[in-house]
Design a protein around this nucleic acid. Structure first.
Lengths: 251, 251
DNA sequence: CGAAGCATTGAAATATATCAACACAAGTGG
DNA sequence: CCACTTGTGTTGATATATTTCAATGCTTCG
């Protein structure tokens, strides 16, 4: 088969690779596996001996609280490595779930560790990736900590749209997002009912549409404003076209 | 002067260093600086060219939200490196404040980068440090996202006590913590008034004392229970004495 | 001593949760 | 292809945790 190495796409989205680097990546043994929607990929307490890249699908990181409720801590899109942390942190401290059918590319820690020793530039890029993860976590804490419901949900939509866009998976302010309102509730720390009402309000304000696993942003500037959104924390690679705002602007 | 290298203490708390490693650390140029209480050490938007180790004092990481309110995202205790992320992430995405007078040991990114290339084991340890940071962020999101006020505050006290203890800075369930109730409010996402009431409740339950910058845990097990606290996320080094619980147990 | 920072209190306002029912869509098996 | 079941979205009414406002008391410190 002609399929290129899954890690190649990830690196090449941000870096221009040397021949040696490309070779080193291609030589890294990977094992593709498929996980069905709503299955756990990793559990709190696990001690994985390999990390994986999300090749295709939507996953999330979560923890369960006292009342048995679940808090979603991050959404993982293709080209993310949700469990890179386990490379140097033995014990898993949260769960990882497949929200849709997911294709994963596993790399053993042994191989990955050696890879990092030998490919210093790429190693630093991976380290940086985990740092961005932490940055997103910080912003999420701000989100649940001090934004009210409407802004909180708007903020989440901003983040997801921008990340999907960076992956080339958003067209004209629309992208596929196989999330239910219950999922969004768990990500924002709002109740399911309140989530519903907040989304209705966002629709009423003509900022977004969200239905049947599809998100459309009608008024990016308006959404950004109600969300108090600043994209810095995502540390996204600079966009090709000059304006940084995707989708339509306000009339 | 006879003072040893500030980084030495950090590494040696968790690792047994080889002679070469110790030499490499000792050779790493550091610059000590002092920052007064309530001064900003770093600001969102900064592009630092050096990282620092907190030698002495109490600092925090924070962001300001829409309403101008501040969310504290992490407390930093001695031996922490609050800004290690800037080594591979140019743009600072949050503020760092000195909460007390702080002594900082700065290392230039240039030196630190080379150090990481040459000292692979220590580099991985530093990477791991940033991963633990991310883990703490996740738990904080859970804290504000789905624990109610009382549990939330209790959880914060558990974390701080355990971390102070790991540094050998807690005796008999008591440690110095120069935090005001306003600080705690900003860390938990509660209002100042509610924070006050929650702390009173924790006192009434005879779980803790907290006054004049000093925290005492009277009933560790009780505090852990009301906090729904599990220490895994801190990834603390294994404790010397068998029982992991500090302070007095319930009667 | 006075001033400033910090802790505490009470009362009223509000954002959000909870409960319970219903509508609607999608997928399944007969 | 229909009847059925299940998951998802929606609504209304009520309950509650938490916020806000405003005032007061207590420390600490210069």
């Amino acid at each position: 088969m002609n399929t290129s190495h899954p890690l190649l796409a990830k690196f090449e989205r941000s870096l221009t690779l040397t021949g040696a680097e490309r070779d080193a990546i291609n030589v890294l043994p990977v094992r593709l596996e498929v996980v069905k929607a709503d299955q756990a990929i990793l559990r709190e307490g696990d001690r994985p001996k390999r990390s994986f890249l999300l090749v295709e699908g939507l996953a999330c990181n979560s923890k369960v609280g006292p009342n048995g409720k679940r808090q979603i801590l991050a959404f993982h899109l293709p080209e993310d490595m949700p469990d890179l942390a386990s490379l140097y942190l033995d014990l898993r401290d949260s769960d990882t779930w497949a929200m849709t059918n997911c294709t994963l590319a596993f790399v053993s820690h042994r191989d990955l560790d050696r890879f990092c020793d030998e490919q210093r530039r790429l190693s630093k890029f991976l380290w940086r990736d985990t740092l961005i993860n932490a940055s997103v976590h910080r912003e999420w804490t701000v989100n649940v900590g001090l934004r009210e419901g409407l802004a909180r949900m708007a903020h989440l939509f901003c983040e997801l749209m921008l990340r999907m866009r960076a992956l080339g998976r958003a067209k004209d302010g629309t992208c596929d997002l196989a999330l239910t309102q219950a999922d969004l509730a768990e990500a924002t720390g709002l109740s399911q009912v309140h989530t519903n009402r907040v989304i209705q309000e966002l629709r009423r304000l003509e900022l977004i549409s969200f239905a049947r696993g599809q998100l459309t942003v009608h008024d990016w500037d308006g959404l950004v404003e109600t969300a108090d959104f600043r994209a810095d924390y995502l540390h996204l690679p600079p966009v090709d076209r000059p304006e940084s705002a995707p989708g339509a602007r306000r009339a």
